[in-house]
């Protein structure tokens, strides 16, 4: 296999993953999705590190990725606990709710142009009921209450 071409291909894929994560982090407002985008950026870095590790025939890249995975797990635990707390305090996952924390003298962000909720937006996923409901055995009910 052409090792140099392999490295270039992986660098492009890593860059794309990082860029997509960055885009999502800037654009989205749901706190959980923002955090997910941060994880996506870490993935891009991991792909790059592994590609360089193979190109130089060195374990350093893979070591770095092992520690990235461990730190990402710790980060996920803390960040999701924080998000849960913030949700309990505010009742919303919207990042803009916390704009009161902005610097003094900055103008407030005002939502404009919230689109009307259309009929097709009100469709919720449902589960199809399957099977038959078992008949209640009267005899069994009698001993159950005695146990």
């Amino acid at each position: 296999m052409n090792e140099a071409a392999l490295l270039q291909n992986y660098l492009v894929v890593g860059g794309l993953l990082f860029g997509i994560g960055l885009f999502g982090f800037i654009v989205r407002r749901n706190m959980i999705v923002m955090f997910l985008c941060a994880e996506m950026m870490l993935q891009g870095v991991s792909v790059t590190a592994i590609a360089f590790g193979r190109y130089h025939d060195d374990w350093g890249g893979q070591m770095l990725v092992i520690f990235i995975i461990a730190v990402a797990a710790a980060e996920a635990g803390i960040a999701l606990a924080l998000i849960l707390m913030l949700f309990h305090k505010s009742g919303t996952l919207d990042m803009a709710f916390w704009q009161d924390l902005r610097e003094e003298g900055q103008p407030a962000f005002i939502d404009r142009g919230v689109p009307e909720e259309r009929a097709e937006d009100r469709v919720w996923p449902t589960l199809t009921p399957a099977g038959v409901e078992p008949e209640v055995d009267q005899e069994e009910q009698r001993h159950r209450s005695n146990v």
């Binding site: 996920a76 009742g91 919303t92």
Partner: peptide, 27 residues
Amino acid sequence: AIVVTFLFVLMLAQPEGHSPYDRISWA
């Protein structure tokens, strides 16, 4: 593990209805 934790938190912190902020993003 991490994705399952995500889904778990989503289950615990799911606001009612479609959130409008997700449909308009930032300005």
